[in-house]
Simulated scan of single mutants.
Amino acid sequence: MVVDGRLLDVTSVPASTLAGYAPYTQFARAAYCDTNKVATWSCGGACDAVGGFEVSLTGGDGNGIQLYFVGYWPQENAVVVSHQGTDPTQFLSVLTDINILLDPLDSNLFPGVPSNVLVHSGFMNAQATTAVPILEEVRRLMSAHGTNKVVTTGHSLGGAISMLDAMYFKLNIPGANIISRTYGLPRVGNPEFASYFDGLGIDFVRINNEKDVIPIVPGRGLGFRHASGEIHILGPGRAVSCSGQDNEVDAECQISSVPDIFSGSILDHLGPYEGISTGTIFCN
Protein backbone atom coordinates (compact mmCIF):
# COMPACT_ATOMS: atom_id res chain seq x y z
CA MET A 1 0.00 0.00 0.00
CA VAL A 2 1.25 3.52 -0.83
CA VAL A 3 0.74 6.26 1.79
CA ASP A 4 2.15 9.77 1.23
CA GLY A 5 4.36 8.36 -1.51
CA ARG A 6 5.70 5.60 0.77
CA LEU A 7 5.21 1.90 0.11
CA LEU A 8 4.07 0.25 3.33
CA ASP A 9 4.03 -3.48 3.90
CA VAL A 10 4.65 -6.06 6.62
CA THR A 11 6.36 -9.45 6.59
CA SER A 12 6.83 -12.08 9.26
CA VAL A 13 10.28 -12.20 10.81
CA PRO A 14 11.82 -15.72 10.84
CA ALA A 15 12.68 -17.18 14.22
CA SER A 16 16.32 -17.45 13.16
CA THR A 17 16.45 -13.70 12.49
CA LEU A 18 14.93 -12.91 15.89
CA ALA A 19 17.43 -15.21 17.58
CA GLY A 20 20.25 -13.43 15.76
CA TYR A 21 19.40 -10.16 17.51
CA ALA A 22 20.12 -11.64 20.96
CA PRO A 23 23.77 -10.49 21.28
CA TYR A 24 22.77 -6.91 20.46
CA THR A 25 20.01 -7.10 23.06
CA GLN A 26 22.53 -8.31 25.64
CA PHE A 27 24.85 -5.39 24.84
CA ALA A 28 21.92 -2.99 25.37
CA ARG A 29 21.09 -4.76 28.63
CA ALA A 30 24.70 -4.64 29.85
CA ALA A 31 24.78 -0.84 29.50
CA TYR A 32 22.52 -0.62 32.58
CA CYS A 33 24.94 -2.58 34.76
CA ASP A 34 27.59 -1.50 37.27
CA THR A 35 30.46 0.17 35.43
CA ASN A 36 33.15 -1.71 37.35
CA LYS A 37 31.61 -5.03 36.39
CA VAL A 38 31.09 -3.98 32.78
CA ALA A 39 34.74 -2.88 32.56
CA THR A 40 35.84 -6.45 33.37
CA TRP A 41 32.92 -7.93 31.41
CA SER A 42 31.64 -9.69 34.53
CA CYS A 43 28.17 -8.13 34.78
CA GLY A 44 26.25 -11.40 35.04
CA GLY A 45 23.87 -12.82 32.47
CA ALA A 46 24.29 -10.09 29.87
CA CYS A 47 28.08 -10.36 29.88
CA ASP A 48 28.05 -14.16 30.05
CA ALA A 49 25.85 -14.29 26.97
CA VAL A 50 28.49 -12.57 24.81
CA GLY A 51 31.70 -14.25 25.90
CA GLY A 52 35.08 -12.88 24.92
CA PHE A 53 33.96 -9.26 24.52
CA GLU A 54 36.80 -6.84 25.33
CA VAL A 55 35.78 -3.54 26.98
CA SER A 56 38.23 -0.70 26.43
CA LEU A 57 36.29 2.38 27.57
CA THR A 58 33.50 3.04 30.05
CA GLY A 59 31.94 6.29 31.19
CA GLY A 60 28.93 8.16 32.44
CA ASP A 61 27.49 8.43 35.92
CA GLY A 62 23.99 7.06 35.35
CA ASN A 63 22.50 10.42 36.23
CA GLY A 64 23.55 13.48 34.24
CA ILE A 65 25.37 11.31 31.72
CA GLN A 66 24.02 7.89 30.75
CA LEU A 67 26.42 5.01 31.37
CA TYR A 68 28.15 3.73 28.26
CA PHE A 69 30.85 1.35 27.13
CA VAL A 70 33.00 0.78 24.06
CA GLY A 71 34.78 -2.44 23.20
CA TYR A 72 35.85 -5.01 20.66
CA TRP A 73 33.71 -8.04 19.75
CA PRO A 74 36.11 -10.68 18.38
CA GLN A 75 33.38 -13.04 17.21
CA GLU A 76 32.10 -10.42 14.74
CA ASN A 77 35.34 -8.44 14.33
CA ALA A 78 33.37 -5.35 15.30
CA VAL A 79 33.65 -2.34 17.56
CA VAL A 80 30.58 -2.00 19.82
CA VAL A 81 29.20 1.14 21.48
CA SER A 82 26.27 0.86 23.89
CA HIS A 83 24.43 3.44 26.01
CA GLN A 84 22.24 3.05 29.08
CA GLY A 85 18.55 3.93 29.02
CA THR A 86 16.60 5.47 31.89
CA ASP A 87 13.64 4.97 34.21
CA PRO A 88 10.73 4.42 31.77
CA THR A 89 8.12 6.13 33.95
CA GLN A 90 10.17 9.34 34.14
CA PHE A 91 11.15 9.07 30.48
CA LEU A 92 7.52 8.90 29.37
CA SER A 93 6.73 12.19 31.11
CA VAL A 94 9.67 13.85 29.35
CA LEU A 95 8.61 12.55 25.94
CA THR A 96 4.99 13.67 26.29
CA ASP A 97 5.89 17.19 27.47
CA ILE A 98 4.37 19.75 25.10
CA ASN A 99 7.54 21.86 25.40
CA ILE A 100 9.71 19.33 23.55
CA LEU A 101 12.02 21.20 21.19
CA LEU A 102 13.37 20.18 17.79
CA ASP A 103 16.76 21.67 16.99
CA PRO A 104 19.32 21.42 14.18
CA LEU A 105 22.35 19.21 14.77
CA ASP A 106 25.76 20.65 15.65
CA SER A 107 27.57 21.01 12.32
CA ASN A 108 30.91 20.37 14.02
CA LEU A 109 29.73 16.91 15.06
CA PHE A 110 27.46 16.23 12.07
CA PRO A 111 29.15 17.86 9.07
CA GLY A 112 27.10 18.47 5.96
CA VAL A 113 23.68 17.78 7.47
CA PRO A 114 21.01 20.17 6.09
CA SER A 115 19.65 22.75 8.50
CA ASN A 116 16.08 21.45 8.10
CA VAL A 117 17.11 18.13 9.70
CA LEU A 118 15.92 18.57 13.29
CA VAL A 119 16.20 16.31 16.35
CA HIS A 120 14.98 16.17 19.93
CA SER A 121 17.17 18.68 21.78
CA GLY A 122 17.55 16.46 24.87
CA PHE A 123 18.73 13.47 22.83
CA MET A 124 21.08 15.68 20.84
CA ASN A 125 22.65 17.10 24.00
CA ALA A 126 23.00 13.66 25.59
CA GLN A 127 24.80 12.29 22.53
CA ALA A 128 27.05 15.34 22.22
CA THR A 129 28.25 14.98 25.81
CA THR A 130 30.15 11.77 25.06
CA ALA A 131 30.55 11.97 21.27
CA VAL A 132 34.20 13.03 20.95
CA PRO A 133 35.88 10.57 23.37
CA ILE A 134 33.76 7.71 22.03
CA LEU A 135 34.64 8.54 18.41
CA GLU A 136 38.34 8.62 19.31
CA GLU A 137 38.11 5.19 20.94
CA VAL A 138 36.11 3.75 18.05
CA ARG A 139 38.73 4.92 15.58
CA ARG A 140 41.52 3.52 17.74
CA LEU A 141 39.89 0.11 18.01
CA MET A 142 39.10 -0.01 14.30
CA SER A 143 42.76 0.64 13.52
CA ALA A 144 44.05 -1.78 16.15
CA HIS A 145 41.87 -4.65 14.93
CA GLY A 146 41.77 -3.85 11.22
CA THR A 147 37.99 -3.68 11.05
CA ASN A 148 35.52 -1.29 9.46
CA LYS A 149 32.49 -2.67 11.33
CA VAL A 150 30.93 -0.58 14.10
CA VAL A 151 27.85 -1.57 16.11
CA THR A 152 25.71 0.85 18.11
CA THR A 153 23.02 -0.40 20.41
CA GLY A 154 20.85 0.78 23.27
CA HIS A 155 17.44 0.67 24.88
CA SER A 156 15.05 3.59 25.40
CA LEU A 157 17.04 6.82 25.83
CA GLY A 158 20.13 4.71 25.19
CA GLY A 159 18.62 3.75 21.85
CA ALA A 160 18.09 7.39 20.92
CA ILE A 161 21.72 8.20 21.73
CA SER A 162 22.85 5.12 19.82
CA MET A 163 20.85 6.10 16.75
CA LEU A 164 22.54 9.50 16.75
CA ASP A 165 25.89 7.76 17.32
CA ALA A 166 25.27 5.65 14.22
CA MET A 167 24.69 8.79 12.16
CA TYR A 168 27.69 10.50 13.76
CA PHE A 169 30.03 7.60 12.96
CA LYS A 170 28.74 7.32 9.40
CA LEU A 171 29.52 10.98 8.76
CA ASN A 172 32.90 11.01 10.53
CA ILE A 173 34.36 7.63 9.59
CA PRO A 174 34.18 7.34 5.79
CA GLY A 175 33.79 3.77 4.60
CA ALA A 176 32.70 2.39 7.98
CA ASN A 177 30.05 -0.34 8.01
CA ILE A 178 27.61 0.90 10.65
CA ILE A 179 25.14 -1.51 12.25
CA SER A 180 22.60 -0.13 14.72
CA ARG A 181 20.09 -2.08 16.83
CA THR A 182 17.77 -0.22 19.19
CA TYR A 183 15.07 -1.36 21.59
CA GLY A 184 12.00 0.63 22.66
CA LEU A 185 13.23 3.62 20.66
CA PRO A 186 11.28 6.88 20.97
CA ARG A 187 10.99 9.16 17.96
CA VAL A 188 14.26 11.06 17.60
CA GLY A 189 13.68 13.71 14.94
CA ASN A 190 11.46 15.30 12.31
CA PRO A 191 10.47 13.82 8.91
CA GLU A 192 13.53 15.38 7.29
CA PHE A 193 15.72 13.66 9.88
CA ALA A 194 14.01 10.32 9.25
CA SER A 195 14.54 10.60 5.50
CA TYR A 196 18.13 11.81 5.82
CA PHE A 197 18.94 8.95 8.19
CA ASP A 198 17.30 6.43 5.85
CA GLY A 199 19.53 7.66 3.04
CA LEU A 200 22.81 7.12 4.88
CA GLY A 201 22.99 3.38 4.24
CA ILE A 202 23.15 2.38 7.91
CA ASP A 203 22.06 -1.17 8.73
CA PHE A 204 19.40 -0.01 11.19
CA VAL A 205 16.72 -1.96 13.06
CA ARG A 206 14.45 -0.61 15.80
CA ILE A 207 12.75 -3.35 17.79
CA ASN A 208 9.48 -2.63 19.61
CA ASN A 209 7.92 -4.97 22.14
CA GLU A 210 4.17 -5.63 22.07
CA LYS A 211 2.25 -2.71 23.70
CA ASP A 212 5.28 -0.60 24.63
CA VAL A 213 4.20 3.05 24.77
CA ILE A 214 7.63 4.69 24.40
CA PRO A 215 7.97 4.11 20.61
CA ILE A 216 4.86 6.23 19.90
CA VAL A 217 6.27 9.34 21.61
CA PRO A 218 7.05 12.17 21.08
CA GLY A 219 3.91 12.46 18.98
CA ARG A 220 3.83 12.98 15.24
CA GLY A 221 1.65 16.01 15.93
CA LEU A 222 4.71 17.60 17.57
CA GLY A 223 6.67 17.19 14.34
CA PHE A 224 8.42 13.87 14.97
CA ARG A 225 8.70 10.80 12.73
CA HIS A 226 10.50 7.46 13.02
CA ALA A 227 13.04 6.38 10.43
CA SER A 228 12.45 3.05 8.68
CA GLY A 229 13.50 -0.26 10.20
CA GLU A 230 10.68 -1.24 12.58
CA ILE A 231 10.40 -4.77 13.87
CA HIS A 232 7.39 -5.24 16.13
CA ILE A 233 7.39 -8.18 18.54
CA LEU A 234 3.82 -9.50 18.80
CA GLY A 235 4.60 -12.26 21.31
CA PRO A 236 7.26 -14.89 22.04
CA GLY A 237 8.72 -16.05 18.75
CA ARG A 238 6.36 -13.84 16.71
CA ALA A 239 7.32 -10.55 15.09
CA VAL A 240 6.70 -8.57 11.93
CA SER A 241 8.93 -6.28 9.90
CA CYS A 242 7.06 -3.06 9.10
CA SER A 243 8.20 -1.13 6.05
CA GLY A 244 8.29 2.63 5.73
CA GLN A 245 8.59 5.39 8.29
CA ASP A 246 6.00 5.10 11.07
CA ASN A 247 3.81 2.48 9.37
CA GLU A 248 0.34 3.58 10.47
CA VAL A 249 -1.54 1.32 8.07
CA ASP A 250 -1.01 -2.25 9.21
CA ALA A 251 -2.72 -3.38 12.41
CA GLU A 252 0.33 -5.40 13.45
CA CYS A 253 2.69 -2.41 13.54
CA GLN A 254 3.31 -0.27 16.61
CA ILE A 255 1.15 2.77 15.84
CA SER A 256 -2.00 0.73 15.24
CA SER A 257 -1.27 -1.57 18.18
CA VAL A 258 -0.77 1.41 20.51
CA PRO A 259 -2.79 4.34 19.08
CA ASP A 260 -2.25 6.50 22.18
CA ILE A 261 -0.34 6.42 25.47
CA PHE A 262 -3.40 5.21 27.36
CA SER A 263 -3.55 2.07 25.21
CA GLY A 264 0.04 1.07 25.89
CA SER A 265 2.01 -0.62 28.65
CA ILE A 266 5.11 0.86 30.24
CA LEU A 267 6.06 -2.63 31.48
CA ASP A 268 6.35 -3.87 27.89
CA HIS A 269 9.08 -1.26 27.47
CA LEU A 270 11.34 -3.41 29.65
CA GLY A 271 10.75 -6.47 27.47
CA PRO A 272 11.14 -9.28 27.22
CA TYR A 273 12.77 -8.91 23.82
CA GLU A 274 12.71 -12.57 22.84
CA GLY A 275 13.29 -13.65 26.43
CA ILE A 276 15.70 -10.84 27.34
CA SER A 277 14.51 -8.06 29.65
CA THR A 278 16.33 -4.73 29.97
CA GLY A 279 16.82 -2.24 32.79
CA THR A 280 18.86 -1.86 35.97
CA ILE A 281 16.77 -4.46 37.82
CA PHE A 282 17.81 -7.09 35.27
CA CYS A 283 21.55 -6.75 35.94
CA ASN A 284 22.89 -9.73 37.90
Rank of each mutant, 00 (worst) to 15 (best):
V3I: 13
V3E: 12
T11P: 11
S16P: 09
G20I: 04
Q26G: 02
A30M: 12
Y32D: 06
Y32N: 07
Y32T: 09
D34A: 14
T35G: 08
K37S: 11
K37M: 09
V38T: 05
V38E: 00
W41N: 03
G45H: 14
A46T: 12
C47H: 07
D48I: 12
V50E: 05
V50H: 07
F53I: 05
F53D: 06
V55H: 00
N63K: 13
I65E: 15
Q66E: 15
L67F: 15
V70C: 03
Y72E: 02
W73C: 05
Q75C: 02
H83V: 10
Q84Y: 07
G85N: 11
P88S: 13
T89I: 11
L92C: 04
V94Q: 14
L95E: 12
L95V: 10
D97C: 10
D97T: 02
N99R: 11
D103S: 15
P104V: 04
S107A: 15
N108G: 15
F110G: 03
V117N: 10
F123N: 11
F123T: 05
N125Q: 13
N125E: 14
A128T: 01
T130L: 14
L135N: 06
E137T: 12
R139C: 09
R140D: 07
S143E: 15
T152S: 15
G154C: 07
L157F: 01
G158C: 00
G159L: 00
A160I: 05
A160S: 11
S162P: 04
S162V: 03
A166H: 01
F169E: 02
F169L: 04
L171G: 01
L171N: 09
I173L: 15
P174W: 11
N177W: 00
N177T: 06
I178D: 03
S180E: 02
T182C: 01
T182K: 13
T182P: 03
G184S: 02
R187L: 08
R187S: 02
G189T: 01
N190V: 04
E192C: 10
F193C: 04
F193Q: 09
F193A: 02
S195A: 14
Y196C: 07
L200E: 04
G201D: 05
E210L: 11
D212G: 00
D212Y: 06
V213M: 03
I216E: 06
I216A: 09
V217H: 08
P218I: 11
G221Q: 13
G223K: 10
G223M: 06
H226Y: 12
H232D: 15
I233W: 00
G235L: 09
G235Q: 05
P236N: 14
V240R: 07
C242N: 05
S243L: 01
E248H: 10
S257V: 14
S257K: 08
D260E: 05
I261L: 03
F262Y: 08
G264L: 04
G264S: 04
I266M: 10
P272W: 11
Y273K: 00
I276K: 00
G279A: 00
I281V: 14
F282E: 03
